[in-house]
Nucleic acid binder design. Structure first.
Lengths: 226, 226
DNA sequence: ATTACTAGTAGTCGAGTAT
DNA sequence: TATACTCGACTACTAGTAA
């Protein structure tokens, strides 16, 4: 957990647009902007760098600061939390994406007995051994991130004979307003934000008559939550 | 300025939806949620109440907390700051409202010589002695608040013979894609968020052929800024 | 000019405890 | 059980200053 004072400094840096470009400033100026001393500003920058939220280049002329992807992630987390508060919670999140064929790992995952039993118990259906891969546009990626701030149904990971399987975060959903299923978010190391995986008890490609590139609508109710 | 630790506590309370309803909890539980002690949670609540960000009712069964309007305002301020960072800055903010006749104070304001001279120098036109009052819907009010987070052109207040006049915050704008003018935000004590006042060098009602209730489009570029 | 170390201090925290 | 006070411990601050 990032300390509130450091978060505040990170936020100030974002006000100076340090997420867009390398920001040149002095620690005196940063201190003034934060209502604190030069020394504190300097220390905060060092700590933020150590935590990986910023990169920093120091010279006798001043500091050059840039917020990292990790730092922006941290700001985004709070942003999404506040969005719910300020804008109100939507009743559903609708995501649209285009069907594409992935590496067919999904099917391998879903056919694991340990996953299957949990799906049956926690989501109420036996998943078809394969996932529907949807490619999301950038605006849809934002909505996916928003979705991820809601508490998921967690399908726990396990160690298999040859490898271990990570946890899967699920959100029950309706696909194309017709079929019940779920969004399945699998924690991977090389993880592409712009992909959405959908599971369902039926073979969705046939059931919904989908082709490569077809647009698919996924409606996730948020009311279950809370 | 609210201290970062206290802001963090306020944020946590909003995660518990204390902005929507009275939240019943114990300080132990709040402490756990914040990764701090019961004592600290208790102290933070007292300080937040003293600052007017929450109302609090204490009993031997626990505390009842509700975030006040002022507290929500504080959360909204940071939300809007983060929105710029996370969503990117829009090139323009478009506001739509319906024309209505106010108390005609606007004309009185605009005909003050001290204001007029500043308008001419800072905005480049002599305002018609009257403002266009637009009634905004709730979604437009949100956009107006977003607009207010950008640095305005400030027309300074002054003391007249009989009364004093407050400062006016202006944003150059285009009205109905035709006429140049500005949004004028006048700080009042009894201040209605859902009203937008527009000034321009011409008599807009005639120039744009507007009637009571006509929808008016106000386009404010944000590029000037920064 | 700068940054950032050291050292002393102010402020924040949490254990104990009164209510 | 609660909240919230006191007070010792510790953290985070700023002044002074070296580089």
């Amino acid at each position: 957990m990032v300390k509130p004072v450091l978060w505040h400094t990170l936020y100030k840096l974002s006000e100076f647009e340090a997420h867009k470009r390398v920001l040149r400033l002095s620690t005196v100026r940063l201190g003034q902007a934060m209502g604190t001393s030069q020394q504190t500003a300097s220390r905060h920058l060092s700590e933020l760098e150590k935590m990986g939220f910023i990169r920093k280049e120091t010279s006798f002329k001043g500091v050059e600061v840039k917020i990292t992807k990790r730092g922006l992630e941290e700001l985004r987390r709070v942003y999404l939390g506040l969005k719910k508060v300020v804008e109100g919670t939507p009743n559903e999140i609708i995501l649209r994406g285009k069907l594409f064929t992935g590496f067919r790992e999904g099917g391998y995952y879903m056919s694991q007995r340990e996953y299957l039993l949990q799906f049956r118990r926690k989501l109420g259906f036996d998943p078809y051994p394969g996932t529907l891969n949807l490619r999301l546009t950038s605006s849809e990626v934002r909505k996916k991130r928003e979705l991820e701030t809601y508490p998921p149904i967690i399908i726990e990971g396990f160690k298999g004979r040859r490898r271990s399987f990570g946890e899967v975060r699920c959100y029950p959903a309706t696909i194309n307003d017709e079929v019940e299923g779920a969004v399945a978010i699998i924690k991977r190391t090389h993880y592409d934000d712009s992909i959405l995986e959908v599971v369902s008890p039926v073979y969705l490609r046939r059931r919904l008559n989908l082709k490569e590139g077809s647009e698919v609508k996924v409606k996730v109710p948020t009311s279950r939550i809370l």
